[in-house]
Write a protein that binds this DNA or RNA. Structure first.
Lengths: 154, 154
DNA sequence: GCTGAAATCGCAGGGGT
DNA sequence: ACCCCTGCGATTTCAGC
């Protein structure tokens, strides 16, 4: 199954998602215990969610500061024309670019860039600026670095 | 050990991090196989990385579109004065705000907001706009939604 | 970082409601 | 469609080296 339809999730599915977003390495037995299922039923749920594309993957989250990236920045890029080849190439080779989103508005792309220090950031942003005009904001801190996705309320 | 010092990582640690960023549910035995260690040694590495704060957690990544959030937006918030209480309260109660970063520049905060549709986004941004002036960009697509963190090259 | 033993887990099949 | 039970090979975890 592929395509981009939306997937029907019952409340148990949401509890499974909540648990796995907080600890993706939970055993199926423990997961089942937490959401009120047996190990097999929990396994089936997770398999359905993965195959249905609801769970895109299981990722270890690494602390950028601890591994030597002391600086994180949001770079907005005003990219001229529809030639995405150069941008694509830049994304490919620059592993310090952690995210890139194509967005509406004057700044066509929003990038997250990790650097060891301001000097490296200067170099990285300089390279990006060869593609178009940039606006860079350095992250002081992240009051909400990421949140678990929950069911739409309304 | 706590605090925010940087952690010494050898090349095996980096390979472990790469594998776990791509599949956090890898068994220790399989992980060891891939990086050239026994199961116990692999277990020890991971435990050291977790306790050293290098790995902040293991998270299932959920597809926003599949679970009913068809719209993702980057909202920049120009927040007056040092009163973070109201912002903090807004972050607490609004589960559709997935990320919030405090940054340099005129726009003090950068938020990622998920919404079911444009109508919900309008409502959410309206609430955020009660805190300060906002600039909203809707995400068309993400050429690089997220990348695994690798060793600084230079 | 390896070895070896006991407890646990993952996975596949079969069956019940 | 959803869940449980069983069996077996693989894995985890603990000890000691």
């Amino acid at each position: 199954m592929t395509g981009d339809s939306t997937f029907e999730l019952d409340s148990t599915d949401w509890r499974v998602l909540a648990e796995l977003q907080e600890d993706a390495r939970l055993s199926y037995a423990e997961l089942g215990r937490r959401v009120g299922l047996g190990a097999t039923a929990a396994t089936d749920r997770v398999r359905r969610l993965v195959e249905g594309g609801v769970i895109k993957g299981f990722r270890a989250e690494v602390d950028l500061e601890r591994v030597g990236y002391g600086v994180l920045a949001v770079v907005r890029l005003r990219y001229p024309s529809g030639n995405y080849r150069k941008l694509h190439a830049e994304l490919e080779r620059t592993t310090e670019i952690l995210q890139c989103h194509h967005v509406t508005g004057e700044d066509c792309f929003v990038l997250f860039v990790a650097a060891r220090n301001m000097r490296d950031l200067e170099r990285l942003v300089g390279r990006i600026a060869s593609l178009g005009s940039t606006t860079t904001s350095v992250v002081y801190s992240s009051p909400l670095p990421s949140r678990v996705v929950t069911a739409p309320s309304g």
